[in-house]
């Protein structure tokens, strides 16, 4: 494999070319195999220091990055909003510069503000990996989604992918849209008009407010978590109505093509965006996504960490 990666940082999929995305996925193939070995560790990042800097709470993404770093033999420390000096009034910039003064090589940042990873990447020498910024991008989640689709369906170009749910506030949706379109998929966004405004059509996707129209045509459905805990009341009347109009119920799941793949970035709300039986059914690849996330994050850390030196 020739070197086709020149980026210190991974900030989003919008800035990547199709070639770069495919290169990450190919690199992840090699790392996925590592996870099946007796000794699940390679020395690729030995001697490097990775900081998991999670200003916004996360369990699964942080754990996935942590494990990925361990398997690459990096030294890892975790910092959360409550344990950082941000609570003492230190700015994000100063916190990052302090981490850099400790010779941090890779900074994995989760932040509630869109653009925070780019802000840091412009100001530190370390690699900055975006682990989710506001409603902007969550590139490693989209890469693992692409990886999982490719693994199940053998390709991405030409597939029809439905992204269903709270698209407006979803960084997962945006990164998926950018990645899927670059790799030649057709994308339809589904959800209430308040959470899936028509403005999204300008990004090159279709928008539908009727889930029954879309399910029979989809090769992949990617369900987004309905974040009712932080949803403002005016966006939709309530969970009951959401389920009635947009939930992937057992009944609606019968509309899906037999080979349609069901995805969810987690954590799932059983009985809200997806029925429990459907989440555990044969078409569901929700746990494959988690496994693949590890391989994809190893690939990203390996590629960016290699550039930083």
């Amino acid at each position: 494999m020739t070197t086709r990666w020149t980026r210190k940082d991974l900030l989003g999929l919008r800035e990547l070319s199709a070639d770069e995305i495919n290169f990450v996925l190919e690199t992840a193939d090699a790392f996925k195999q590592v996870g099946t070995r007796e000794i699940k560790k390679v020395p690729a990042l030995r001697g490097k220091t990775l900081v998991n800097f999670f200003v916004e709470p996360s369990t699964r993404t942080r754990t996935s990055f942590e494990l990925a770093a361990f398997r690459l033999s990096a030294d890892v420390i975790n910092i959360s909003a409550t344990t950082s000096s941000l609570t003492k009034g230190e700015t994000l910039k100063d916190t990052a510069r302090n981490l850099e003064a400790l010779h941090t090589d890779i900074l994995v940042l989760r932040h509630s503000s869109a653009g925070a990873p780019q802000f840091l990447a412009n100001r530190v020498r370390a690699s900055v990996i975006n682990a989710g910024d506001g409603a902007h991008e969550h590139p490693t989640q989209a890469l693992l989604d692409l990886y999982t689709i490719r693994e199940r369906r053998g390709k991405i170009a030409g597939l029809h992918v439905a992204i269903i749910g709270d698209v407006l506030f979803s960084r997962v949706a945006r990164s998926n849209i950018f990645g899927l379109l670059k790799l030649g998929a057709r994308v339809t966004l589904v959800g209430p008009s308040t959470l899936v405004p028509r403005e999204f059509e300008k990004l090159g996707v279709e928008v539908s407010h009727k889930i029954e129209d879309v399910l029979p045509k989809a090769d992949v459905v990617n369900l987004l978590r309905i974040q009712h805990e932080r949803q403002r009341r005016e966006y939709f009347p309530g969970l009951g109505e959401y389920i009635r109009l947009f939930g992937l119920t057992k009944e609606r799941a019968k509309l899906l093509k037999p080979d349609c793949v069901i995805m969810h970035p987690g954590p799932i709300n059983r009985g809200v965006e997806i029925d429990s039986d459907v989440a555990d059914g044969l078409q569901s690849v929700i746990l494959d996504q988690v496994t693949n996330g590890l391989a994809v994050r190893m690939a990203v850390l390996y590629l960016c960490g290699g550039i930083a030196t």
């Binding site: 919008r14 506001g134 902007h136 506030f169 403005e199």
Partner: peptide, 17 residues
């Protein structure tokens, strides 16, 4: 306006602001 920080339109949609 709510907690809006940029013009609501193409770029706010794209950037998630």
């Amino acid at each position: 306006v709510g907690n809006g920080v940029v013009h609501e339109g193409y770029w706010s949609t794209l950037l998630g602001l």
